[in-house]
Design a binder for these strands. Structure first.
Lengths: 356, 356
DNA sequence: ATGAAAGCGCTAACAT
DNA sequence: ATGTTAGCGCTTTCAT
């Protein structure tokens, strides 16, 4: 591609200085109308496209925000391998949007409507650090998913531009954060399961990570308050439905299936659902299953998944809002906004689950 | 946020020149290991994050590709208004990813794995031109959806950077293009409907745009080849299910319902499906319905939607591939890659539609 | 209202 | 192997 025209070319053609060209675009009212028109005409005739690099260098701001999205599903070789594991439908549930995608959509929409461009970066364990640094150098503010980047890297970046972490309340962090009220969601869910369905024996399903800690703690607290026993969580591995299958088979053999599996998130729940189906254990008749998040796949499985819905689009929009606020006038301390969640009663708990 | 450290700071701290700092990062082998380490250390200690603007300005390339995505659903006020129109489920089908989202995912994945950052821009009719020009100034190559941007703007941009248009085969264009074999898809579909189901009376459903022209033409050709009558298409309006409902009511009243509605795309088909359900006309028993595209929502409706699946992720990946190829060595003439489609026989045509 | 000129932070010759 | 230096294209005082 031929080198594009610059301010100099436009200025020459319009018979003005480069400063005037710049003004004609950025502060139209400061140049006489006739001058402005000749500049605009020249620009049009030449096919002038301003260089964002030059502009960014000169202004010290790029006008773009960044979202760094670890590609959980597609770039990690492990996940790739196990893609066909769920329900034998290689092409199916794993292709539906998950939490990350729905949050991303919120980020996009808010960026566009606020006049910012969005730079998306992705990486895996290997490319992670350089990839996130790269994108950090391109934007005025950055949004990151929790626990995807070493804290040290995050700290370095946040010394230069504002960073919002999408995280659970637990994490002590000096970054801006948007969180959701996990504890309240679990409480609503458990009250429904205990109070309405009269379930007594529960089992929590989760990989043991910080992500699910708040949920597990709230779950334990509710059980304790009701004088119910808290079993140790069933430690599945993400994406590896084989492990889950084995664990569930053991439970069945020992006659110790619970009344209800409370899964730490919807993806776990879908795996559990499919595993139970494969084992010939009817859901919700023999055992109920619940999730957490509210991803699309939860409406596709049969029975449909009772879950706690997070306002994913809003999470994304809120993160952008924090960034723009911060850019406008830097707050003294890191912003933290907590968003509400809501119970979605569907079929997998034993309800009819019509309306959503 | 405090101004971040620059090459000068790093150079000073490491006791070298800025050129050495630059080399230490870009051509590590060209500097002595001890020197390189002291530079890297200094950078780490200072929390150095290279400025992409400066780098882009100096190199003439940004290392990012762009995707300009008109936000069909969420930024156009018309659509917003009618969001609740489908099946009375305000929150439902329209929130699922559509064609655009799935293509975007392919673009993202390919960019990341090829080491490019992705700049996403969005706009509506009003902000469109300036928004797309803005993003064009930020990237080394741009991908656009068909008919979202005035040809003149596209031309101007493509004089500066390579542009790939995701489009139908019909469009005569000087841009790079990736298309799908619409005609073949329709042919496979029609052969199934005519040959297997023995349908005779068809009605094509589509808004009359260039998008659907190739599909309609192929549809007509197949009917003609079978000696079947071609009715004028039922001209629904996108998102306005009320119009569709009215048209279908008329058909029913006059006793002229077809054997099968062949919809130009899945979104239309979902509307038709819901409309027929509301009118108490059983699908597929009284009348069959088919779509085109293969979006997620097609698997959610009841009956599930028989359709022609486009390789959406691959479309996105291919566009990126073209751009990177072009950047590497500019081709003499615009690239054009046509991708195959495949028939997805599900329930709405009268099949059992188990496997996908 | 417009022009002149000094950077913004980095890369890439070209010198040494 | 490392340093010097001239831009890259634009914004922004400061003059005029």
């Amino acid at each position: 591609m031929v080198k594009g025209p610059t301010v100099y070319d436009v200025a020459e053609r319009a018979g003005v200085s480069i400063a005037t060209v710049s003004f004609a675009f950025s502060q139209p009212h400061r140049v006489r109308e006739s001058t402005r028109n000749s500049v605009l005409d020249a620009a049009r005739e030449l096919g002038y496209v301003p260089s964002a690099s030059a502009r960014g260098l000169a202004k010290g701001r790029t006008g773009a925000l960044g979202l760094f999205s670890f590609d959980f599903l597609n770039l990690l070789p492990e996940a790739e391998t196990d893609r066909t594991a769920i329900g034998g439908a290689p092409d199916d549930f794993l292709r539906f949007p998950v939490w990350v995608d729905e949050v991303q959509r919120g980020v996009e929409l808010e960026c566009f409507s606020r006049g910012y461009a969005l730079m998306i970066g992705g990486g895996n364990k290997a490319s992670g650090e350089r990839a996130v640094t790269d994108i950090a150098g391109r934007v005025d503010g950055l949004i990151i998913f929790p626990r995807t980047i070493p804290a040290e890297v995050t700290r370095r970046i946040s010394a230069r531009i504002p960073v919002v972490e999408l995280s659970d309340p637990e994490g002590e962090s000096s970054l801006h954060r948007v969180t959701t009220d996990n504890a309240s969601g679990i409480r609503q869910l458990m009250e429904h399961l205990i109070g309405f369905h009269r379930f007594r024996k529960f089992m929590f399903v989760s990989i043991p990570t910080a992500d699910t800690e708040a949920r597990y703690n709230a779950y334990s607290a509710v059980l304790a308050a009701h004088g119910l026993a808290v079993q140790p969580p069933l430690e599945s591995r993400p994406g590896t439905s084989a492990v889950t299958a084995e664990l569930i088979a053991e439970l069945q053999d020992s006659g110790s299936l619970p009344d209800c599996f409370v899964c730490a998130n919807d993806q776990e729940a879908v795996v559990v659902l499919e595993t139970l189906k494969a084992a010939g254990i009817p859901v919700p008749d023999r055992v109920a299953v619940t999730g957490f998040d509210g991803i699309v796949a939860g409406r596709l499985v049969k029975p449909t998944l009772t879950t706690v819905r997070q306002p994913m689009e809003l999470i994304g929009r809120t993160a952008v809002d924090i960034l723009i606020d911060t850019l406008t006038d830097p707050p003294a301390s890191p912003a933290h906004r907590q968003l509400p969640v809501s119970l979605a009663v569907r079929e997998s708990c034993g309800c009819r689950g019509e309306g959503d």
